[in-house]
Amino acid sequence: MKKATTLFENGDHSWRVLARDPALPSHLVDTNEYLISSRGSALLTDPGGQEVFPSVFSALSAAADPRTLTHIFASHQDPDVISSLALWLSFKPDLKCYTSWLWNTFIPHFGGTAETFISVPDHGATIELGSRPLQIVPAHYLHSSGNIHLYDPGAKLYFSGDVGAALLPPDANELFVTNFERHIRFAEGFHRRWMGSREARDAWCARVSRLEIDMLCPQHGAIYRGRDVQRFINWFSELEVGVLKLGG
């Protein structure tokens, strides 16, 4: 089962990460789910694939009352992001799911009805959880053509989906980045291959550099804290992306 770790807590406002299931089969990519709670409402970011649903559900139940879950946030349409949707709806049929308008007719193949989805326009949106504002930040083409992130200005935490993701080996499976130089090696191949557009990357780096971010929280790998947040943005801004070099 995954374990819940509190990243931020101030009164009734909190962020918890559900991560690191020791029993995860090696053929499944590991994922981080973030539970944001405020005033009796909760939102789960990229709730994961259907195979990890039992582990996520049990970890969430240990950390909070799952009945407070009101929203799901899908950064994009990949199966490791949102293929568990039908199972979440089995638990709570009135859950709402934020996603880019682009995937409105695609993600329902995983489950849900027309009432389930809240379309996010290309320029993003400001939403409320409890009474707390959260900003949906556009991150299109990073990597998906309809891609969104979530920024919490109160907590100064930023959910970055696949941006910042790292595919960590089992012996370096830390929850937080502790050695940036060592860690970024596990992120490099992923970003070179998955991130398809230099223009989108530049726009994103400029946009998030203006935000106050204490933690950058990706869907895979370790969480960047403090100075490592800007170090990551600087590193990413200089990385060659969108080029596939085939050998031979």
Binding site: A86, S90, F91, K92, P93, G111
Partner: peptide, 10 residues
């Protein structure tokens, strides 16, 4: 996948 009442109750 549309949930049934039984699944939700489980």
């Amino acid at each position: 996948m549309t949930p049934t009442a039984d699944e939700s109750h489980g």
